[in-house]
Amino acid sequence: MLLTLQCCGQDTDGLNKAMEKAVARSKGSFPGSSHSPPAIEDASETQEKSGDWEIDRRLLKIGEKIACGSCGDLYRGIYLGQDVAVKILRSEHLNDTLEDEFAQEVAILREVQHRNVVRFIGACTKSPQLSIVTEYMPGGSLYDYLHKNHNVLKLSQLLKFAIDVCKGMEYLHQNHIIHRDLKTANLLMDTDNVADFGVARFLNQGGVMTAETGTYRWMAPEVINHQPYDQKADVFSFAVVLWELVTAKVPYDTMTPLQAALGVRQGLRPELPENAHPKLLDLMQRCWEAAPDKRPSFSEITTELETLFEEVEETTEAVNGN
């Protein structure tokens, strides 16, 4: 399973303003953010360093549209005989901020190489046809697998998926990158792995971020509150992903995203599932602690999940042996 990067969230547009108004009406203050973290490279610097990863659009064949975003669309395509995914930013939405986000995404994708991070193939960096080309993941998103195909995971498969996500996230955090939009829609599947990458950013020198991003149903309370946050915000999002894997349900499915955000801000969490493995329930609750410093790191989570996976495999073998 692979982690994915994207410049724009699919369902948060317009919600930030609504969230500000709603929180202003609720008790407590709404901490503002006066600045966003600087992009590590601007678009011109990215273009200057493009080299052999600059895509020749004449060699790129665009096929069917497979997903829509708020400011761009994802297509299946072919490049040099290889199946690829092509994310194209819509020219009518381009502005300096989006071009900076695009440059940031390209800069990060160029630097990361991990079996659980989607493989970057190249980019078209010449405005107005900005696009990013990555490997094509035939299995689609984990969100679709769970919620559209109504698949219920066995414990061993669930743990494999969760460990894949954790290993990709551990790699990103070790390289001082925060994902910022970890959710099942950004977890892509091939035949036997999960990969991811979303609205990632390099950590600034202070180690905290203040930009608004992400998707409310998976978002940590400190991000919702526009407070400084660090890598532990991704751990909170992972807790919600883990809950999805266990329940095969959409978090807060009876609420609007705004209602979910207000609830999380006030301490709401998804209802703990019955009959789930107690160690998973315990891990879930520690990962979505309100205080970020109480949440475990992805290296700790990976170790716990791998230990549990071994226990499950040994139990299964023992039962089958009998």
Results as ranks from 00 to 15, higher is better:
40 I>E: 12
157 Q>W: 09
287 C>N: 04
263 G>F: 08
204 N>W: 04
190 D>H: 09
120 F>M: 03
181 D>W: 04
276 A>K: 02
267 G>V: 14
248 A>H: 14
207 G>A: 08
107 A>L: 03
184 T>Q: 03
125 T>S: 13
5 L>W: 02
181 D>I: 09
225 N>V: 00
209 M>D: 00
164 D>V: 09
180 R>A: 12
318 A>L: 12
260 A>K: 00
319 V>G: 02
24 A>D: 04
283 L>Q: 10
225 N>L: 12
32 G>R: 12
116 N>P: 09
139 G>E: 01
72 G>Y: 02
30 F>S: 07
101 E>T: 03
152 V>Y: 09
104 Q>W: 00
23 V>S: 05
125 T>M: 07
251 P>N: 11
237 S>L: 12
172 L>P: 04
162 A>I: 11
110 R>K: 11
139 G>D: 01
86 V>W: 04
180 R>Q: 10
290 A>N: 06
129 Q>P: 00
146 L>W: 01
42 D>Q: 12
93 H>S: 09
110 R>Y: 02
23 V>H: 03
223 V>H: 00
226 H>G: 07
306 E>H: 03
299 S>Y: 04
56 D>M: 14
150 H>T: 11
278 P>M: 06
160 K>Y: 05
209 M>G: 00
21 K>R: 08
193 N>Q: 08
100 D>Q: 14
288 W>R: 09
62 I>M: 09
228 P>E: 09
175 N>E: 10
90 R>T: 02
89 L>F: 08
97 T>S: 08
21 K>I: 08
